[in-house]
């Protein structure tokens, strides 16, 4: 199911100079913000939770997910170099599964790790806030990577659609329309985070059971469908 060569090619494509820079911007911003907040207002659990929830989980994780998820396959389909993977005796779902693992790993590395560091800076993991948001970011990374990897196989404009989802749906609708919140990766991840802290600093609109079921269903379905998309991917000529 996992092909190390496909993984190597994907990592190198994803972490190429330009994209690695883009991936690095938000985590650096988060850490700088955390340092500033900590030095101005000292350790405050509420402030820590607001920054990690409002910026790290609501904005940074989905955006990193978009870049890593779509970037793991979109550019290859766009420029046609995916043909070198497809013209091999290699099951298409193996290609997708491998790319998913890479996208998850990259999303986790660039979102969960900085979230943890920021949490430690903000309040030294008081009330388990750093750990709770880190776990939430880890969980969200899986679902986002799978969703945006699928998006990368469906449309050439995957980054745009991904960003619209991340910023409009998750950040805007998610905070205004309660129904939208049930269908938000962010809320599902928060439910898992809530389980870690137990307190009311990290809360979610959905129950842990619903969240777990939805996270699993979305991840599995998106991965399966991406495999199907790749099986039927046609490389039309220039004409």
């Amino acid at each position: 199911m996992y092909d190390p060569t496909v993984a190597r090619l994907t990592y190198r494509g994803l972490l190429g100079r330009r994209r690695a820079l883009i991936l690095g911007v938000l985590p650096v911003l988060l850490i700088v913000l955390s340092l500033a907040v900590r030095s101005f207002s000292g350790a405050d659990d509420q402030v820590a939770s607001d920054l990690l929830g409002g910026f790290a989980l609501a904005t940074m994780v989905p955006i990193i997910g978009v870049i890593a998820g779509t970037g793991a396959i979109g550019p290859e389909i766009d420029d046609g170099s995916v043909v070198y993977l497809l013209a091999k005796p290699l099951k298409r779902p193996t290609i997708i599964f491998t790319k998913l693992i890479v996208a998850i790993a990259v999303t986790m590395a660039f979102s969960a790790v900085p979230t943890f560091i920021a949490g430690m800076i903000l309040n030294g993991n008081g009330q388990q806030i750093a750990v709770a948001y880190t776990v939430a970011a880890l969980v969200a990374s899986i679902a986002y990577a799978a969703m945006f990897l699928l998006l990368g196989t469906v449309t050439r404009h995957a980054v745009v659609f991904g960003l619209v989802y991340a910023l409009v749906w998750e950040a805007l609708f998610g905070s205004l329309v309660s129904g939208a919140r049930t269908l938000s990766v962010q809320q599902w991840a928060l439910a898992v985070g809530h389980k870690v802290t137990g307190g009311d600093l990290v809360t979610s609109d959905v129950s842990l059971t619903t969240a777990t079921v939805l996270l699993t269903v979305v991840t599995v379905l998106a991965t399966w469908y991406a495999g199907q998309r790749l099986r039927s991917l046609t490389l039309a000529g220039e004409e």
Binding site: D79, G80, V83, P89, K91
Partner: peptide, 20 residues
């Protein structure tokens, strides 16, 4: 997919993992 054990393909498009 098994057919690719017997086929070698040289596509027209240029793109080919230029970073390698």
């Amino acid at each position: 997919e098994d057919i690719y054990r017997h086929i070698g393909i040289v596509p027209e498009r240029e793109a080919m993992y230029d970073f390698l």
